[in-house]
Amino acid sequence: MGQFRYRAQASDGRRHTGQQQADTPRQARQLLRDKGLRVLSLAPVRSWLLGWPAVLGKADLALLTRQLATLIQAAMPLEEALAAVAAHAAKPRLVGLVHALRKHILEGHSLAQALALYPRAFPELFRATVAAGERSGHLGAVLEQLADYTQARQAAAQRLQMALVYPLILLLASVAIVTFLLGYVVPDVVAMFVDSGQALPLLTEALIAVSGALRRHGWLLPIVAGLAVLASAAALRKPRVRQGWHAWLLRLPVLGSTVRAVEAARFASTLSIMGRSAVPLLDALHIAASVVGNLAIRARLHRVAQAVSEGASLTQALTSSGDIPPMMLHMIASGERVGELDHMLQRAADQQEKTLAAQIALLVSLFEPLMLVVMGGVVLLIVMAILLPILSLNQLVN
């Protein structure tokens, strides 16, 4: 349902201006006439969706998909389902987007065609799956699968974020404490040693130099860090630089295997839902590869789709890519043999995600004591740098 800005004249001759909500300009004119107004001009209100790319969070997308699936499975027409979803939506951005989709549906577009007009809100996976559901006549069931998939991805992202909250707080607290010690505590404590003119230990001199540099130039650190972040972001916008960075990440000892596990689970889960939604395998492979975030892995998975189109089996092509863990390859191979590839892909993705969650939990549990040890070591160095001159002074007095 759209908004129309109008100028109209009442029966007593007074002019009125305002906005009228309606599906079409004809309906807007009729509603105004029912109010006793003679329409002088009528124009659609330009939606913010047309001037700014619509973006939906995972939570909003999952909620929208679940509501649509429930209403469509209850045999409600699509335009009525969209109107009902918009009526119960809390966020203005979501309301505007759903009204825009309903407007396109009333103009004769399919749901997949309407979704394609807002690619920032609905990813390619979502649009292709909806198109397959409309072709098969099982749109409600497909939307239900999409809602489950979106909620699972959102839950996985939230678990990862929650696991990283405490280590991040610990890291920031450690940096703040060390900065405070070096910037304010150490200079006052060691000032008397500097004024005494005695020879200072090397560790104390190094600490005084670091503390002085921090006091004189510490204000530059946030600026330098910000400029470094901006320069890195600008460089990573270039495809060649970003692909080289992603390839380098895969070569790191622990992080590389974790990135591979994350992308493999995402690829398998996406390919599974595409297969269950009756999307052709080659199209599903290209879409699943596009979902992968690491550009180096994405390029190899696109070559997997090319190999399958040339007659290779999916297991053979994935084995040659080298990005899928052996256990997942065994499960995919057995799914191909028994004709239950979609089911085995989902099982493989679930198993990989559980293994990945255990690995991340282990890494986080190791990071916490490691940060404490590092923090304790830094504080120990500061204390030693302060105590060494005191011990030297006591020896001289004795």
Rank of each mutant, 00 (worst) to 15 (best):
W52Y: 09
L42F: 15
A87M: 00
R66G: 14
A74I: 01
G57K: 08
Q30S: 15
A87H: 07
G57S: 11
G18R: 00
G57T: 04
L37A: 12
R26E: 13
L63C: 09
T24S: 10
R38Y: 12
V85H: 01
V55W: 14
G57I: 01
V45E: 13
V55N: 13
V39L: 15
L78M: 14
P77R: 10
L71T: 05
G57D: 01
V98N: 01
R26Q: 13
R26A: 15
A89G: 07
D23C: 08
L50D: 15
L56I: 01
A89Q: 05
G96Y: 00
A22K: 09
P92K: 05
R66N: 14
L37H: 11
Q30G: 15
R29T: 14
A22N: 08
Q19V: 14
D34F: 10
L37F: 13
Q27Y: 02
P44F: 11
Q67G: 07
L94Y: 00
D23E: 14
H99G: 03
S47Q: 07
V55L: 12
E80N: 10
H99S: 04
Q19R: 15
A81G: 13
L71H: 09
L71N: 10
L78N: 15
L97T: 00
R66T: 10
A89C: 07
D23M: 08
A22I: 01
L49M: 08
M76C: 09
P53N: 08
A75I: 00
A43T: 11
G51W: 03
Q73L: 04
A62L: 03
Q67F: 02
D34C: 09
W52D: 06
A59W: 03
A22E: 03
Q19S: 13
L68S: 03
L82I: 04
L37Q: 06
G51N: 07
L32T: 05
A59V: 08
L42K: 12
G36C: 06
A43Q: 14
